[in-house]
Simulated assay, not measured.
Amino acid sequence: MPTPTIEHVEVFCHRVPISAPVSTSFGIMTSRPGVFVRLTDSDGAFGWGEIFANWPAAGAEHRARLLIEDISDLVLGQRPEAPGDLWHHLDRATRIRALQCGEWGPFAHVLAGLDTAMHDMDARRAGLALWRHLAADGDAPGPARVPAYASGIHVADGTRTLPRERARGHRAFKVKIGFDASEPALLETLCGMLEPGESLMTDANQAWTLDEALAFGEATAGLPLRWLEEPIAADSPDEHWQRLSRAIPHPLAAGENIAGAADFAAATASGTLAVIQPDVAKWGGVTGCLIAGRAAVAAGHSYCPHFLGGGIGLLASAHLLAAVGGPGALEMDVNPNPLRDAFPGADPVPVEGAVALSDAPGLGIEALPPEIARYRTLALSRSRSQAGT
């Protein structure tokens, strides 16, 4: 039988106002956006993906229009033999378009969401959960359980949030830092609250210069931090990262702001990062992150998928981690987000620091939850007949 063609592209934007902003060292989120994409082929099979849209504030609606008005003509009518074929095709076909407007990031985000949708469709067609479909033998034992950690915690809120998340079942916690000079003392307090078997990680969100990062490392040298994430800008010279890895006693982590197979390969080979953190909604989708994750684990690093968005991307991250394996952990944002929690399986209760994955086909998502319809800001679609292909 001929391979089915992609016949329909749909994208749905949502935005949830929040009473407690989510703070990072570089800015504050005053709403939680979500961009979800659905692909349907000529056999009626479908798949769901998620497109990164946390930044800038108007990014969600922009990416939806970018998909429908600038990229869908390259999607509709395609006959991918394997789910990753579409991503490789689009990566080549959109290069000049992205170059022309200087929007490498938004193009990569859209392609990532499309790739996840293709993998969801492929696994659904096979009748397998995505993590099983990605596993090398295809019949790994289940149900899968993956280690997880509580994330999105402002360091100043740690003394209140850590006990709450421990009660929920978490045994690892990541706090956001990079705000002021009081943080070494706050971290010492939080480390003193840890119980046996628990760990604390930190994320500076690219807050510091090299000298500031070195000073932080010196001030916290005696603390048992599991890792220090993005202490300097992700695109800092490699010699800066090398110097940090030699001088700071804490393992370094990064990856959410790395894009491109060559850059991930270089980051893995350099030896400066102990933890590699690609984001399935920002670059590569399932195809790219699977390659980066497996390469990281093979090189002796931890693969810990970064994610701070809606339910589809979180589920895709969990399935990727289950398929890749290794000593990684799933990032679970603990801030309220209906665009995550309304999805079946996307708000799991950790048991001793690990969460279980569903064995439902694909990502286990049939449709967008009706509870999030009131947050919708935009819905666009395009079919093959409209595209004239």
Rank of each mutant, 00 (worst) to 15 (best):
P350M: 03
A346V: 11
P369W: 08
G345F: 07
S358K: 06
L368T: 00
G345K: 07
V355C: 04
D347V: 07
A379R: 13
P370C: 10
P361V: 08
D347G: 12
D359M: 11
P370R: 13
A356W: 06
A373I: 10
A373P: 08
Y375V: 06
R374G: 15
E352M: 12
S381F: 06
L363H: 03
R384V: 14
E352Q: 13
L380S: 09
G362P: 00
L368F: 04
V349D: 14
G353L: 07
P369N: 07
L363N: 03
V349E: 15
A373Q: 13
R384Y: 06
P369H: 01
V351Y: 09
L368V: 00
T377W: 04
G364N: 00
A354I: 08
I372W: 02
A360E: 13
T377K: 01
E352P: 05
G345P: 04
D359W: 08
V349C: 12
R382T: 02
R376W: 03
I372D: 01
V351H: 13
P369D: 07
G364L: 00
R382I: 02
G362T: 01
E371A: 14
G362Q: 00
P369A: 05
E366D: 15
E366T: 13
L357M: 07
S381M: 07
A379L: 09
R374H: 13
T377N: 04
G364Q: 01
V349N: 13
E366F: 07
G353T: 06
A360Y: 07
V351I: 15
E371Y: 03
R382Q: 11
L378E: 11
L368C: 05
P370S: 12
G364F: 01
L368H: 07
V355G: 02
E352A: 14
P370L: 11
L357H: 04
I372M: 04
A354M: 11
E366M: 12
R374L: 15
G345A: 09
V351R: 15
A346K: 08
D347W: 14
E371H: 08
R374M: 15
P350H: 00
G353F: 05
A354E: 15
A379K: 11
S383E: 00
P370A: 14
G362F: 00
A379V: 10
I365Q: 06
R384H: 08
G364W: 04
V355N: 00
L357G: 05
Y375R: 09
A356R: 15
R384C: 09
A367V: 12
A367K: 15
G362S: 03
T377P: 03
V355I: 08
V355W: 01
L363E: 02
L378S: 09
R382D: 04
G362E: 02
A367D: 15
G364H: 02
S381K: 04
A373E: 15
R382Y: 00
A346H: 05
P348S: 12
E352L: 06
G364D: 00
P348G: 09
A356V: 13
R384F: 08
L380C: 09
I372Y: 00
R384A: 14
A373Y: 10
P361T: 04
T377I: 05
G364M: 03
S381E: 10
V351P: 05
A367N: 12
L380M: 09
L363T: 01
L357D: 02
L378R: 08
V355T: 03
I365W: 03
L368M: 14
G353I: 06
E352D: 15
A356L: 12
Y375C: 10
P369E: 06
R384N: 07
L363P: 00
I365N: 01
L363Q: 02
E366K: 11
L380P: 03
